[in-house]
Design a protein around this nucleic acid. Sequence first.
DNA 1: CCTTGGCGTTAGTTGACCCTAATGCTGAGC
DNA 2: GCTCAGCATTAGGGTCAACTAACGCCAAGG
Lengths: 223, 223
Amino acid sequence: MLSAKMEDYLKAIYRLQRDGDGPVTTSALADALDVTSPTASSMLDTLEERGFVEREKYQGTRLTRDGETVALEVIRHHRLLETYLTEQLGFDWTEVHDEADRLEHHISEEFERRVAAALDDPVVDPHGDPIPSETLEPLDGTPGITLAEQEPGDVVVVERVSDRDPEELSYLSKQGITPDQRVEVLDVAPIGMMTVRVDGDEVSLPDRVTEMIQVITVEEAEL
Amino acid sequence: MLSAKMEDYLKAIYRLQRDGDGPVTTSALADALDVTSPTASSMLDTLEERGFVEREKYQGTRLTRDGETVALEVIRHHRLLETYLTEQLGFDWTEVHDEADRLEHHISEEFERRVAAALDDPVVDPHGDPIPSETLEPLDGTPGITLAEQEPGDVVVVERVSDRDPEELSYLSKQGITPDQRVEVLDVAPIGMMTVRVDGDEVSLPDRVTEMIQVITVEEAEL
DNA sequence: CCTTGGCGTTAGTTGACCCTAATGCTGAGC
DNA sequence: GCTCAGCATTAGGGTCAACTAACGCCAAGG
C-alpha cells in the first residue's frame, strides 16, 4: 500500500522540515534522496494525491498529520533496529545505519513489538536520538543545544550525535565522543575550529562536526 | 544487482526442482509465485541472459550452478531468520514464515554472520529443514521417508514438517506434531486417512498432510 | 522594468515487473 | 498421421520510479 520508496520520501521530508524551518524545497529533498528534482516533484504529486503531504506550487512541501505519522513509524523502526543490532547482535553503533535503512521498511508490527520488548521499550537509540513511542506521538521539535555553541571553560555531557555521515560518526566514536560522555571546551579558534578535552585527551573539531553534536550543559565558564 | 523478485524466482525453481524431478515447467513456476505464465516466461528470459538458469524451449528450466548458489543463499537467510525469530525473539515457529520471506532479501552478509553466530551455527531450522552452510554447498537431495509411507504399528520420530501452508503447520503444531516428536501409527484407512498416537492423544490426518511430514523410523511393525 | 539565473514543473523515455489476448508447439488419442 | 487440448511463448499494454530535456516562475541587479 505504501512503497519503501514512499516511506523514504516521507522520512526525508520529516528530517528536512525539522532541520530547516518552513516548507521543504523540491531540490533539497531531491538532494537528500539522491534523485533528480523532476523525480522528487512527481513523487510529491503522488504523495499529495494520497494525502501525506501538502504543497503550494513553487513554494514547497509540508507533511500532513498522516504523513508525519508514517514518518514517525519508519523512524521508530529505524531506531529500534539500530538499538537492537547494537545491543543484541553486537554491531558497532557506527555501522548499523545502512542495515537499519534497509530493514526498516520490511518488518511487521509484530516484529517491532517483540524487538521493543526485548530492549525493554527504549526511548533513545545508540546515537542518543529519541525513539518515537508505539502510539507515534509527535516528537518534541525543539532543536537542542549543540557543542558548537559552547565557550571555552564550559563543561557538557554529550546527548546526541547525528548519524548522517558514518565516516564522521566512526571518527567521533574513536575519539570517545559518544552519548553520555563528559566533554570540556578548551578553546574556540576563529577559523571555525574547537578544541575539547574528552576522557583526558585533547581533540580538535571543525564547526561542521560540532554542530552535529547535541549536548547538555553541566558547568558554565566563569565570566 | 539481483532484485528481490529474481531471488524469489530462483528460490521457487530450486524447490520445484527438488520436489518434482526433471526440469521445471513455466506454469508450475507461475503457480508457485502466483503470477501468470507469460510473466514467468519473460522473467526466465532475463534469468537465462544473466546465467542463472538454462532453458530448452517448450521443455522447461533448470538452475545453473550460479542460480543454485543464489537460491541456497536466500534459503540460508530464510532458515537462519526463522530460527532466530523463534529462538531469540520468542515467535511461535508456525508464524515466522512470512516475516522471513520478506527479510531474507534485505539482510547483509554481516547480519547473516552475526545471526548465525548468535545461534551457534545451527544446521536445521525450527521446522527441521536443513540450513545451507556459509559456503553454500549443495544440500543432500534425497527425498527422505514421509509419515504417509508408514504402516500401522510403525513408530517414528518426526524429522521435518514442511512449512508450505501456515494453517496446516499451526494445526499440526497444536496436535503436538513437531520435530523430534515420537509418533506411533495406529491405523491406515483406505480413504487416504491415517490415525496416529502423539503424546498420548489420537490424531487423524489426511494423506495431503502426512506426505508433508518427514520421519525417521524407530520401530518397524511386526509382520 | 526588464533581464537573467536558479529553481520547479511538465513532457517524454526507460527498465523492471506485472497483465490479457493471440499465437505456436507438442504429444495423446482417434 | 491428423487433430486438438494444454502448455509455452510472443505481442502489446499498464504501473512505478527513475532519468534528460524543455519550459515556466520569480526575485535581484542593472
